[in-house]
């Protein structure tokens, strides 16, 4: 029942020779950014038994794009400083992992929108040669992505975009004492809740065990919420795949309601014992409990990849 940590997004440093076709070919040929190619095909590190490093990188990349990056939209909704930052931005950035996940983030009219897959509206298109390449960037690597579109916006990527990702990192990786500030705590919890919901979908898509858990889960929609008017997200299990969303459903099949922000933060961060919190009435569950059981089992797997 934990989503203990989320990966910090580090500023993107555009490659000085971005767009150079020779360089792109060289990178694709040598794949120097992915040291994991050199490791044994089956690795048993980090408790990821049975998954190849390629498989682990693919899962991490899906989580980075599908769960962490997606939070920029929520960040811009709840953080006044972020709103100020993006007020005049007019750009859409496409992230593409070669033979891997894709996502985009758009800043227009003072708002931020994000999405999975590709958009025809991108002004900048960044390509990563492998999932490991993307993950390295999310982990702070200096090895840059390959811009294949929007060379004129490299200044934006170098100077402005990192400021919004820094805000996200500020909230998702709080320093000592920061969670004592109620407003900060609320923002951190909201972002963590949405990261957890999105991560659930990404794991079901990419991780074999999460897929098996989802396959054994009855069809239904689970509401995750804080109090009666706090942040809320939902996840939907069905044979056709998993969907997630923000906000409150009118008729969920199961609900998991955290009494307040501190309880939600404690449980979602793994600092508090979620089962004991249910016993104390701090977390209230109703309805089709198998949905909650499966969702929390899958969420608990996130830390294997984003720790």
């Amino acid at each position: 029942m934990t989503c203990r940590e989320v990966i910090p997004i580090h500023p993107i440093t555009p490659m000085p020779h971005a767009g150079n076709p020779r360089l792109v070919r060289a990178i694709l040929k040598n794949a120097p950014v992915c040291a994991s190619f050199k490791l044994p095909a089956k690795a048993c590190r980090h408790g990821l038994e049975g998954l190849s490093i390629m498989g682990v990188d693919q899962i991490k990349a899906s989580l980075n794009l599908g769960a962490v990056l997606q939070n920029l939209a929520e960040l811009c909704r709840l953080d006044p400083e972020s709103q100020k930052l993006i007020r005049d931005w007019d750009v859409c950035v496409q992230f593409t992992v070669f033979a891997g996940p894709k996502a985009w983030v758009e800043f227009r009219g003072g708002e931020c929108r994000t999405g999975l897959g590709t958009t025809a509206l991108s002004d900048v298109h960044l390509v990563f040669v492998t999932p490991g390449h993307l993950n390295a960037m999310f982990a702070g690597s200096a090895i840059p992505p390959i811009p294949v579109k929007g060379f004129k916006r490299l200044g934006f990527l170098k100077n402005e975009f990192p400021r919004i990702t820094a805000r996200l990192e500020h909230y998702l990786k709080p320093g000592p004492g920061m969670l004592d500030d109620p407003a900060f705590l609320a923002a951190n919890t909201t972002l963590t809740l949405h990261t957890a919901a999105n991560a659930l979908r990404e794991l079901v898509k990419t991780e074999p065990t999460a897929g098996k858990i989802a396959a054994g889960t009855p069809t239904g929609r689970l509401q995750l919420a804080v109090g009666s008017d706090g942040p809320a997200a939902w996840v939907s299990f069905s044979p056709n795949g998993m969907e997630v969303g923000r906000g409150r459903l009118e008729h969920p099949d199961a609900t998991m309601t955290f009494r307040d922000i501190p309880v939600a933060q404690g449980v979602l961060s793994g600092k508090e014992d979620g089962l004991a919190a249910i016993g104390r009435g701090e977390v209230v569950i109703w309805g089709m409990l198998p949905l909650i059981d499966s969702a929390t089992l899958i969420m608990d797997r996130v830390e294997r990849y984003l720790a």
């Binding site: 014992d273 004991a276 009435g281 109703w286």
Partner: peptide, 22 residues
């Protein structure tokens, strides 16, 4: 109990399936 026993009560006697716990 929750201070000294994981989950307060573990296993099938634990609170989660008892809905509402109250």
């Amino acid at each position: 109990a929750s201070k000294v026993i994981p989950g307060g009560i573990y296993g099938h006697f634990g609170p989660p399936p008892y809905v509402p716990v109250s």
